[in-house]
């Protein structure tokens, strides 16, 4: 199986210390007011009252297998990197149209206020290049966040995947109407599971896809056929040209 970087997060270990948030901000110079990761608070859920203890759900971009943000990107600036399974943003190809933002059910993306392009968690691509784990993983005091190739049983996250595949205690947090097949898996009680929004494809993009594209195909197709037909006529019926000097005076094309 191909490489798929991801995380297995043991929600029961999270203390809500927010170390992962600040480590991420620092490592990635995340601009003021923006966050690449989060800890959802279980107390926000109605079911929390019935629960005896508080639960926390650390998260971030889920580097989904069916990423709706990729479907919302016109240029391919956001894409699923087949080499390691991460969802990548090519900042030099991103035009900052923002269509991927509402397309993410998790709200994992923001528009970078200075670079004016989409931005989100990249599993600390710089640190990984230096042989380090993502900042949020390294800093976690209880090791609630475990990172690695989910398909490699020798990686820390892959080991947990393999171990818990049998007892079926792994859960994904998904909106049923936008099943993106995320690559962040949870152990323990992650608390709120229904917070992801339905992925919203921008109106302009839907209009493009459903109306503008077929309309342009039709118009260009019909004129193209017309031109080909005229060309064929010119080649097959070469005699059919207007007379150079028509009788009564002229043919004013």
């Amino acid at each position: 199986m191909s490489k798929q970087l991801g995380m297995v997060i043991d929600a029961s270990l999270c203390l809500d210390c927010k170390g992962c948030l600040s480590a991420c901000k620092q490592a990635n110079q995340v601009p003021e007011g923006k966050w690449r990761n989060w800890i959802k608070d279980g107390d926000l859920e109605p079911a929390a009252a019935a629960r005896r203890r508080v639960v926390f759900q650390p998260g971030g971009c889920m580097h989904c297998d069916q990423p709706t943000c990729v479907s919302a990107c016109p240029t391919g600036a956001t894409y699923k990197d087949r080499r390691d399974g991460t969802v990548v943003i090519n900042r030099d190809l991103c035009i900052g149209c923002g269509q991927c933002l509402p397309a993410c059910p998790y709200g994992a993306r923001y528009r970078h206020p200075h670079l004016r392009v989409a931005d989100k968690c990249d599993f600390c691509v710089q640190r990984r290049a230096d042989g380090l784990e993502p900042a949020c993983v390294s800093t976690c005091p209880t090791k609630a966040r475990v990172f690695g190739d989910l398909n490699d049983p020798h990686s820390p996250a892959g080991r947990l995947m393999k171990k818990h595949a049998a007892d079926q205690t792994l859960t994904q947090v998904v909106n049923r109407r936008s099943p993106t097949d995320p690559n962040l898996y949870y152990l323990g009680d992650p608390g709120p599971k229904h917070w992801p929004a339905q992925a919203k494809m921008p109106e302009a993009l839907e209009f493009f896809k459903n109306l503008v594209k077929p309309a342009v195909n039709l118009v260009v197709g019909v004129t193209g056929l017309g031109v080909v037909a005229m060309l064929a006529k010119q080649l097959l019926m070469p005699g059919d040209a207007p007379p150079e000097h028509p009788p009564q005076g002229g043919d004013h094309e």
Binding site: I95, C97, Y110, R116, P202, A204, L205, V212
Partner: peptide
Amino acid sequence: SSWIIDTPNVPWVQWSITIHY
């Protein structure tokens, strides 16, 4: 859009793509 437009929500940039095409 990526030079000077600072608003995070940019529907007119999105519509510009559709209109451009």
